[in-house]
Write a protein that binds this DNA or RNA. Structure first.
Lengths: 141, 141
DNA sequence: CTAGGGGTTCGAGCGCGCTCGAAGTCAAGC
DNA sequence: GCTTGACTTCGAGCGCGCTCGAACCCCTAG
């Protein structure tokens, strides 16, 4: 598989794939006779995993650490596990934060919905301001 | 309240508060006789709300849009609501992604845990490699 | 034989969200 | 009166994660 096809299949751009190789996130790819990268399909699984780490907000330097440990052999298993566990904990915490924020968002939206309901049927022009904190005008926005 | 105290109470740095004012995320604060910002406690609610938007990944330019709408008066309610609803949908989608990733992470960690269990009691030196995708060595890491 | 398209390396540039430092002002405490 | 320290403005710089363009190479199809 050439880099163009890997790009299509993985969702990364060819530029990004080369960048990842450069920094060590992807293994140095075998080159064909003409010096072009030629990938094995198995790389897709690794990229998919990196994608998940990215989605969950892991910084590249940590993915790099993980990749290094992998490269260093199976005796680094425990450290890799620890790294993933620490990350998992952060993700869980963030998830909880997000859920809490979602509730607030829902409440806020509910407030606006209410205001619209109150103002729409009888066409009032000065409806109350759906629960906004006072004093937060932005004059020079 | 001076900027230093607001910083303490809000968790933002004074630098960041000034930056937010500069770009329009925070209202232009009243100045005292000496030209220093003097804040009303109500600003804290607005900052807390911005924090939630930030936590949920809203880019500053969208917060800015929201702030502008607020400044434009109560008739912008529907548009603000729409903005928040669109954001909520994105957050929900991201939340679902995260949860899916968490499962994968758990599985992966489980794999490492297994490997450790298998390798530890009888002290093998070449345990199987906990479900890692093959061919993802990183030679020049 | 030539044109085209995809590949190569290298290094600069970008968008985001701050973060910081310099140089100056002002008010309160000793 | 002088020091201290929190404030002011302004503009530059940073860390992250790409993103892109230039200049060149090589293979294939027409």
């Amino acid at each position: 598989m050439k880099i163009g096809e890997l790009a299509k299949r993985s969702g990364l751009s060819a530029h990004t794939i080369r960048y990842y190789e450069r920094i060590g996130l992807l293994p140095y790819a075998d080159r064909d006779a003409g010096g072009r990268r030629d990938y094995d399909a198995s790389i897709l699984a690794w990229i998919a995993f990196l994608d998940r780490l990215k989605t969950t907000g892991m910084p590249i330097r940590d993915m790099l650490r993980y990749a290094e440990l992998r490269a260093a052999g199976s005796r680094t298993g425990p450290e890799r596990r620890a790294l993933l566990e620490a990350h998992r904990d952060r993700v869980r915490a963030h998830l909880a934060d997000l859920q809490a924020c979602l509730l607030v968002l829902d409440t806020k939206i509910g407030g606006y919905a209410e205001a619209e309901k109150r103002t729409h049927p009888d066409d009032q022009s000065h409806p109350p301001d759906a629960g906004e904190p006072a004093g937060a005008r932005t004059p020079r926005a």
